[in-house]
Design a protein around this nucleic acid. Structure first.
Length: 498
RNA sequence: GGUCCUGUGGCCGAGUGGCUAGGCAGAGCUCUGCAAAAGCUCGUACAGCGGUUCGAAUCCGCUCGGGACCUCCA
């Protein structure tokens, strides 16, 4: 099999992927902090990794895909003081912190399902792994890379940096980082400005706190990923992923923690997905320019001209490489909607063709070769750092061939039986299994189909009698209901939702 | 200020040193009772200026523009 190349943030180039254990993949992706609704930018990351997960499954790997739910700690701003996000939100909504967690976790899962993302194989929560996190902090303390001040434990970045480069993931030297850091007022307890908390002392009024060797407190905001990835994937595993915004702090600190604890770099390949932007600026919770998936599906947002379905959005994202920023606009979304429709209808035409008899030797050898090359290109493109956009381009090049085969513009038998089988299999597998696209309006199609066939039959009879008043009435009124009838060359009539 | 990424035809977007990306929109044609759909044809783009090269949108330098990170964020 051809090599799979992955752009590795650690080496800043495309590396050939070699698993630690042949045939197995361990992948950790930073999940959401469930104190509010996920917005579309978050979804992009999870969709990107869903495609990566699906591609490894397609390649036959046994994958352990761990994606955490952050439901503890995390202060508002890294000031090591004040409220954590859950307590704040809990007070705001007058709920228990765990009710907040439950509410937004359920919402998150619902959205993931709408986008047809496969669930990870393990989805651990931070609150469920407090003892593992405490153990890890103890270990780091014992190894001398952390210190305790009045119930709070800090990671000693400068000491660590003397032995191992701290900023390797983003290619920065400690001195440069120090220059960029502001003086933190009233933060005397930290020895170094870059030091970050592993464990934080809780004030009595804190809603979420746990006992520890250093008193009542809660975990710092990087340790959970280190503890849980270590627990479920081992101290070193294949792939660690997350949004690009996490690289500079969160992932940098994860590497430092794992090195300080186990003396090993946690992941061999780091994959970072790029941001979703709106009018050129990054979509983020704090900027307030975030779209919620629900607003998108209903079209209920000032910037949206209409509603867009989850599959349109998924397809829209697939048209751009995961490491490029993706700008969100009505025009782009509408183009995606139409493009997906075209692709989907080609797929349906392909299914219609499946029963045809084909020769062993193609009548049109050049076409036969071209089809094979395009289909083969699916794997080649994915092997080049998951180039989904290129795969789609190939699919679109195959679309007129499929449609012509169906419509008769290309005579049957032009391609061989084996080529057709290859096309049929790969087109289907890629569309559904690798890209995870599915029919949007799956619903009451069973009965609707029957009714439509009746109307199509009546219209056909009217047309045979040249009663175009009746035939046009049927077509036009169905059109108003959002159903489009299409007369095909051979006299067949197909329909689709407008 | 520091570390990076990026600038492609009307819009969105892939991309390899030399061969048509693709989608959407637009124009023409074929088919059709008409329409829609489908099929065919059409744009010769790569921020600017230099350099390397037989040859660069693709490599290097500079200039200009956009963005991310350095502070919670996928």
């Amino acid at each position: 099999m051809a090599d799979l190349k992955i752009y590795n943030s650690l080496t800043r180039k495309k590396d050939v992927f070699t698993p630690i254990t042949p045939g197995h993949l361990g992948m950790y992706v930073c999940g959401p902090t469930v104190y509010s609704d996920v917005h579309l930018g978050n979804c992009r990351t999870f969709i990107s990794f869903d495609i990566i997960y699906r591609y490894f499954l397609y390649l036959g790997y046994k994958v352990r895909y761990v994606r955490n739910i952050t439901d503890a700690g995390h202060l508002e701003g890294d000031r090591d003081e004040g409220d954590d996000k859950f307590s704040k939100k809990a007070r705001l909504e007058q709920l228990e912190p765990m009710e907040i967690v439950q509410k937004y976790t359920l919402g998150f899962h619902k959205v993931m399902e709408l986008f047809n993302n496969l669930p990870p194989t393990i989805e651990p929560t931070a609150t469920g792994h407090i003892s593992e996190q405490i153990e890890m902090v103890k270990h780091i303390l014992k190894n001398g890379y952390a210190y305790e001040v009045d119930g709070t434990v800090y990671f000693d970045v400068e000491k660590y940096n003397k032995e191992k480069p701290y900023g390797i993931l983003t290619n920065r030297k400690l001195e440069e980082l120090l220059e960029g850091t502001r003086e933190l007022g009233g933060q005397d307890e930290k020895k170094g400005r870059l030091d970050f908390a592993l464990w934080i002392k809780a004030k009595p009024e804190h809603l979420m706190q746990w006992p520890s060797p250093w008193g009542m407190g809660f975990p710092g905001w990087h340790i959970e990923c280190s503890a849980m990835s270590g627990k479920y994937l081992g101290t070193q595993f294949d792939i660690h992923g997350g949004g690009m915004d996490l690289a500079a702090t969160h992932h940098t600190n994860e590497i430092a923690q794992s090195e300080a604890c186990y003396n090993v770099s946690p992941a061999r390949y780091w994959i970072h997905t790029n941001m979703l932007t709106v009018n050129g600026a990054r979509m983020s919770k704090s900027a307030g320019n975030g779209f919620l998936p629900g607003e998108l599906f209903t079209g209920d947002h000032p910037l949206l001209e209409k509603a867009y379905s989850p599959m349109t959005v998924r397809f829209f994202m697939l048209q751009t490489h995961y490491r490029s920023t993706l700008d969100f606009s009505n025009e782009a979304l509408q183009a995606a909607e139409k493009g997906l429709k075209r692709l989907w209808e080609a797929y349906q035409n392909l299914k219609q063709l499946s029963s045809q008899q084909l020769p062993d030797t193609p009548a049109d050898a050049a076409l036969d070769v071209r089809v094979r090359e395009l289909v083969k290109g699916f794997d080649d493109s994915m092997n080049d750092d998951f180039n989904t956009a290129k795969v789609l381009a190939n699919m679109f090049e195959l679309t007129p061939v499929i449609n012509s085969l169906r419509g008769g513009q290309i005579p049957p038998g032009s391609i061989s039986r084996s080529t057709f089988a290859f096309l049929n299999k790969q087109f289907t597998v890629y569309l559904k299994d690798v890209f995870g696209l599915r029919e949007d309006s799956a619903g009451d199609n069973g009965r609707l189909e029957g009714v439509l066939q009746l109307l199509i039959q009546i219209r056909k009879e009217a047309r045979a009698k040249r009663d175009f008043v009746t035939s046009d009435k049927i077509r036009n009124e169905l059109n108003e209901q959002g159903i489009i009838l299409k007369d095909e060359k051979d006299g067949n009539v197909s329909w689709s939702f407008g």
